[in-house]
Design a protein around this nucleic acid. Structure first.
Lengths: 146, 146
DNA sequence: TTCTTACTTTATAACCTTTATAAAATAGTG
DNA sequence: CACTATTTTATAAAGGTTATAAAGTAAGAA
């Protein structure tokens, strides 16, 4: 399942003349296996054992390459580090304000917002972004008991 | 109109025991008069004439104070600088990918997303964020002609 | 009005994420 | 196997934001 999608990503790269390197393979593998939307630094730290000499720049460079090719999405949150999400189906994120956990969430109904916004503002609308913030169940429980 | 809202903000601060300083007053005034959702640096530069010795830290500190009190909202966009929006009614933003222009946009219909997300994920949902990205009319025209 | 004190401002340095640079290494083609 | 354009590495630097400590000041009390 994840290996299939990983293979698909590797094929996509091959088709766009992006060279496969051990570092790239490892970063991809980590992205597709982890369900946690990791930050660049988390990826870097996770692969330290495998690639003691890998540079942070390599992680950032490759994440950008993956993003340009369209197999990875960057999730930006102000000051904090970006998180990276290997693209599958369209989905939104529900984010815990306490622990930062990110949960995927499907909701197909919002696309009409784009056409309305285009109509009202005159923009050529391309995309939208939506996130939902709150407290995940474990964090909510911890707050309740004192 | 804007002066009324400004006065309201000042009153809010007084009620929360936040001291009024000339710098604070000027930052607030600038925020309420400008319709551009300025960055901290833009505010800093705009007030340079009035306060030649003001420190950037003052701008950041006060924006945080205003945010905590609830009279200002921070809009975060990854690497780029945060923008600050004096809170009025609930609204969304339509953002130009070319020139960065931000246009306000009302759309009351999305609140049901929150309850659905709460139901599906078990989160205690608090807020959501949505933005629409595209090309504003002037930028779209510039791209078309060559 | 003046005093007092806690809150603010200033100036500066530091932090953190991300990007630029140039030299060394290497993937993939012929 | 050799060639070359692409990657990696190591390092420095950029850019936004925050921490710190000393100096200044708002606002209530006397």
């Amino acid at each position: 399942m994840t290996t299939e999608r990983l293979q698909g990503a590797i094929d996509t790269l091959k088709n766009t003349k992006v060279r496969m390197t051990p570092q790239r393979h490892a970063i991809l593998e980590y992205l597709f296996e982890s369900m946690t939307h990791p930050t660049a630094d988390e990826i870097y730290k996770a692969l330290e054992g495998q690639f003691p000499n890998m540079s942070v720049a390599t992680v950032y460079n490759n994440l950008r390459v993956f993003k340009d090719v369209g197999i990875v999405k960057e999730l930006t949150y102000g000051d904090a580090s970006s998180r990276f999400d290997c693209v599958t189906t369209e989905h939104y994120h529900v984010i815990c304000n306490e622990c930062g956990k990110i949960v995927d969430f499907e909701y197909p109904g919002i696309d009409e917002v784009e056409s309305l916004a285009a109509h009202v503002t005159g923009f050529e609308v391309e995309t939208h972004r939506m996130e939902i913030y709150g407290k995940c169940q474990p964090c909510a429980e911890q707050t309740t008991k004192h």
